[in-house]
Amino acid sequence: MFVAVQGAGLVPDGDGVREKPALLLLLGGPGSDHSGFKRRFSRLCDMAQVIDVDQRGNGRSGDGDRAD
């Protein structure tokens, strides 16, 4: 499975750090990938860590073994 992560999950907050929420994007349809949406959803990186997933058999993710 191909996964692209945009933005940090932990960010400085005073003397410590705080965790930002994660936004999981399950994109695609037959053959498509996350790249067409990357610029649009990267604007959310100020509020959340954005995780793009190319589902099995789509985009940069291979089909894998169907028995698995």
Rank of each mutant, 00 (worst) to 15 (best):
A4G: 02
V5N: 07
Q6I: 03
A8Q: 09
A8R: 07
G9I: 03
L10T: 05
V11S: 03
P12G: 11
P12S: 13
D13H: 02
G14Q: 05
G14H: 05
R18M: 04
E19I: 02
K20G: 05
K20Y: 00
K20M: 00
K20T: 03
A22E: 01
A22V: 10
L23R: 09
L26F: 09
L27N: 13
G29V: 06
P30Q: 13
G31K: 11
D33L: 05
H34I: 04
H34T: 05
S35D: 03
F37S: 14
F37Q: 14
K38I: 05
K38M: 06
K38Q: 13
R39H: 10
R39D: 10
F41M: 07
F41K: 09
F41T: 01
L44T: 03
C45Y: 00
M47G: 00
A48L: 02
Q49R: 15
V50W: 02
D52P: 03
D52Y: 14
V53L: 14
V53M: 14
D54K: 10
Q55P: 00
R56G: 00
G57E: 04
G57M: 08
N58I: 00
N58R: 03
G59T: 09
R60I: 00
S61T: 14
D63Y: 12
D63P: 10
G64R: 14
G64T: 13
R66V: 14
A67R: 15
D68K: 13
D68N: 12
D68R: 13
D68A: 12
